[in-house]
Design a binder for these strands. Structure first.
Lengths: 233, 233
DNA sequence: TGTACATCAGTGAACGCGCGTTCACTGATGTAC
DNA sequence: TGTACATCAGTGAACGCGCGTTCACTGATGTAC
């Protein structure tokens, strides 16, 4: 199916709106993202944007969904570039793809993982699935390593308190067969670790100078690899 | 030195401004914090607030400094309540004080550790020291445990890359004698881990239902304790 | 191939709103003698 | 104890600004016959 000139132009304009929006987020933050200033930047009047997005929140939702997708894609692509049985290399690739994407797209990273925009409520039916893709990239790797008997799950994850068992239980039905509850918890734990270091680096919560290089992140990734028993192959 | 009625009232009003500001942050976020709406809430006109703070940024700075101080104090108090040689108990106390304070004061926690307010630049001479107090609470404990030979520093922290050695080196001069570079890096790594889980819980980046209980945090703290060799005493 | 009609991107004016900050001022509180 | 003066909390008007969203509209693009 070919697109008419009009439809082509429409897609271009829609993409440009999102691009300008991303620039604006970088400059003034997602909370101050304004349709009027996007329109101004594009040489349009503000009402014109309503041809493309029902309102400001709809634009924000689109940006959030694309950001999650882009991050998950970057991580999955890094993973795919390694040999399937090189679990150590795959984890490192995923972890650094996570950090690199964050450093290259700080505004998008902040949009999805920073302070929620006040007054904006993310529509769950649109954002939950893309958000899950990020976690799944880590989760799939762990599952494969586990099935290949190349993953050591630290003791406390094996002895989950009942409350956690129950919460995770419901989730397991939506996941491939054979994934242990401890793996799900481990996945989130690892995400939190990677996220914490990246956020601290990004906004200077550590010692100045130390963060920018990513050296701290490198050490942290090495520690995680060691703890999971993902030996160098 | 006794305060006059006027001075007393001044302190009350200043405290009330900050209190109302904290409420507003909870409702609309720190980025949308507005002097006019604070004044409205207090039954004052907006210019009156300029008797207390030079401008909006000065108020924000005061809130940030107080938040760091309150968090650090809560953590230090929890630490102080345990026997000095119960390093495992002390770490748990500090870690849970961190989480509890965050859950009880989400707006303050978000103010200091969330997305920076666009356009606001924190004056380093006022915020760096209080921010450091939080990290120091963890750092002091590790130092004491290390000196008592009750701390196992995971291998990768002992073999820091040169870049990290250098960055941390400058910092060591401001710290008590005998603190190893690995301890500084370990401190930040632990902060990042605790922070990552708390933030994920606070804003729902994990599986719904799983986060609220704090069960995930509990497991994470247990894992850290085990890794550091802080055995139950 | 040409014409009549439908679609739809974008305009310009308007709505009602909120913001930080300044300024000259009033009137209460505090102080010095 | 009483009076003159200084201090300072708070007011009200004004400055210039930006925002999301609606509405009736123009004019270009696309389509059906």
């Amino acid at each position: 199916m070919t697109l008419t000139r009009r439809e082509l132009k429409r897609e271009e304009t829609e993409a440009e709106i999102k691009e300008v929006a991303r620039q604006q987020m970088a400059e003034v933050g997602a909370a101050a993202l304004s349709l009027r200033s996007i329109a101004r930047e594009m040489g349009l009047t503000a009402p014109a944007l309503y041809r493309y997005f029902a309102n400001r929140d709809a634009l924000v939702t689109a940006l959030i969904v694309e950001a999650y997708r882009a991050l998950a894609t970057a991580m999955a692509a890094a993973d795919a570039a390694r040999a399937r049985d090189d679990f150590n290399g795959r984890f490192q690739a995923i972890a650094f793809a996570f950090r690199n994407w964050a450093m290259q797209h700080p505004q998008d990273f902040t949009l999805i993982y920073g302070t929620p925009i006040p007054g904006y409520v993310a529509p769950r039916d649109q954002t939950v699935e893309p958000a899950g893709q990020v976690l799944q990239t880590i989760g799939f790797l762990l599952t494969e390593a586990w099935q290949a008997d190349k993953l050591t799950i630290p003791q406390p994850y094996e002895e989950l308190p009942p409350a956690l068992q129950t919460s995770v239980g419901g989730l397991l039905q939506d996941l491939p067969e054979g994934v242990p509850a401890s793996g799900v918890v481990l996945t989130m734990s690892i995400w939190a670790r990677l996220y914490g270091v990246v956020w601290g680096e990004l906004y200077g919560h550590f010692v100045p100078g130390l963060a920018e290089s990513g050296a701290l992140y490198q050490v942290e990734v090495a520690v995680i690899c060691a703890e999971l028993g993902l030996e160098d192959s």
